[in-house]
Nucleic acid binder design. Structure first.
Lengths: 119, 119
DNA sequence: TGCCATCAACAGTAGATACTGATATTACTT
DNA sequence: AAGTAATATCAGTATCTACTGTTGATGGCA
C-alpha cells in the first residue's frame, strides 16, 4: 500500500507494434464503458434520441441511482453530453467519430450470435 | 472460471424498448471482450495478420500464461479462431466482418482521444 | 526414446466495480 | 418561503476479474 511504489512495469511498447499497443491502451476505456449491459443499454437508448435521466430510468427499469452511476463514466469519457433543461438533465450521444465503428461492430452481433460465425 | 462473461439472468425487458435492452444484453459480452487493453491489443495485432501465441507474447510483452489466458474468452466468444500448426497454435480473427471494424479502429486517428471529442 | 518447445488449465491473490440505500444539491411550483 | 421533483454524490458490500506461478498436456526434433 505505502511501502510499494506502484511502478507498473508497463514498458511502454517500443517494438514495431508499439503503435498498436498504444492504440489499444487508448481505446480500451471506450470499450470498457460499453462492456456493461446496463451502460450499453443506456447508450443504445441515447442512440435513438436524447433522453433525461428519468426517461432512461423508466426505459431500463433500473434504479435512478444506478442510472446516474452509469452515466458518470460515460460523461467523463466524453461519450455522452449533458444539457440541463428545467430541472432535468438531458443526455445525448457525443458524436459519430466513435459510434461509427461501434455501429459496424454492433451489426456484427447477429453474425457472432451463438458463436455461429459463418464467414 | 474467468472465461465466463455472462451475467445473472435479468427479467427480460418487456417495455417498448425491450428490443434494445435485449440487444444490449447480447452485445455487451463482445464489448467486454475488447474492454481489456491487453485483450484489445491482441485483437488489433490479429487484425494485421494471423499470429501464433508465441508471436503474440513477444509483440505484447506479456507473459505467455497471460496471453493464453486472454485468448480463452476470445475463443469462446467466437471472436478468434485457432488453427494448430506444428506445435504452435495460429490465431486469427473470426471473420472479415469483424476484421474491418477493428482495422478501422486500429487506424483511427487520435481524434477520439480521451475526452477530446470535439463535435 | 528422451528432450525441448509450445500452449492451456489450475489455484490463489489483489484490485476494481456494479449495485444498494441514504443524503445532498438544484430547480421548479404553489 | 415551503414543498417537491429530478439528479448527483457518498459509503458499504459483494462479486468479478486481471494477473501470477506452477503444473499438465501435446507435438516436433535429435
Amino acid at each position: 500500500m505505502d511501502t510499494q511504489i506502484d511502478r507498473k512495469p508497463k514498458p511502454v511498447a517500443a517494438g514495431p507494434d508499439g503503435a498498436l499497443i498504444d492504440r489499444a491502451r487508448d481505446l480500451a476505456p471506450q470499450f470498457k464503458a460499453l462492456s456493461d449491459e446496463n451502460r450499453l443499454a443506456i447508450v443504445l437508448l441515447l442512440s435513438e434520441r436524447d433522453r433525461t435521466v428519468r426517461e432512461l430510468t423508466e426505459a431500463t427499469g433500473l434504479a435512478q441511482t444506478l442510472v446516474s452511476h452509469h452515466l458518470a463514466p460515460l460523461r467523463e469519457l466524453g461519450l455522452v453530453t449533458v444539457t440541463p433543461q428545467g430541472r432535468s438533465n438531458v443526455y445525448a450521444l457525443c458524436c459519430d467519430a466513435f459510434t461509427a465503428p461501434m455501429r459496424a461492430l454492433a451489426g456484427l452481433s447477429n453474425a457472432t450470435e451463438a458463436a455461429g460465425c459463418d464467414c
